[in-house]
Amino acid sequence: MAASSVSSSSVVTERRGIPAASFVEDVQTYLTQSGLDVNSSLSFLQERLHQYKIVEMKLLAQQRDLQAKIPDIEKCLDIVATLQAKRGSDEALVADFEVSEGIYSRARIEDTDSVCLWLGANVMLEYSYKEANSLLRKNLENAKASLEVLVADLQFLRDQVTITQVTIARVYNWDVHQRRIRQAQAAKKT
C-alpha cells in the first residue's frame, strides 16, 4: 500500500490536472480568509465534489478499458506461444475458428514462422513469432504500467473527494454550532 507516500500531500497541489483539495485546519479561519459565508462556501465545495465525481467516472471508464485489454493481450501471447511450441514438431496445428457468429470452420496451420498482428486502424502486419512475442510483451507491460498510474490517479482523486466531503461536514457542523451559541445567547438575554 502506498499509504505513506501521501503524507506530504499537503504540499501537492495537483496530480495530472486534478486539483488537490486543500485541507481546512480551522473552519472559522478558512471562512474569513476565503471571504465566503457558510452557504456560498458549501455550494463551492459541493460544486468541487461534483467535478471530482465526473473525473472519477472518466477514470473508472479508462480503468475498465485497460482491465479488459490486459487479458486480451495475454490471450494473444498464449496463442503465439502455442504456435511457437508446435513449430518444428512436423505436426500441423489444427484449430476450429469462428467464421461468422456461431459458424466454425477448421484450419490447419502448417509449419510456419510468422503470425499477423492486428495493429488497429485497419493495419495488420506480419511478424516472426519472436518479434510478435516481444511486441505483445511490450504492449502488455505498457498496459500494466498505465493501469498502475491510473489506479494511483484514482486513489489521489478519492482522497480529494474524502477531504472535500469531510470539509463540507465540518463547515456544516460549525454553522450548526454557531447557531446554537447564538440561540443560547439570545435565550439568556430574554
Binding site: A3, V6, R158, T162, I163, V166, N173, H177
Partner: peptide, 23 residues
Amino acid sequence: QQGGGSESEVTWEDQQNINKFGR
C-alpha cells in the same frame, strides 16, 4: 459522514486517517 452539531477538532492527521480508511 459526520453528523451532529458537536465540534471536535479535525487535524490533518485525522483527515489522513479518514482518507486511508476510505481507500
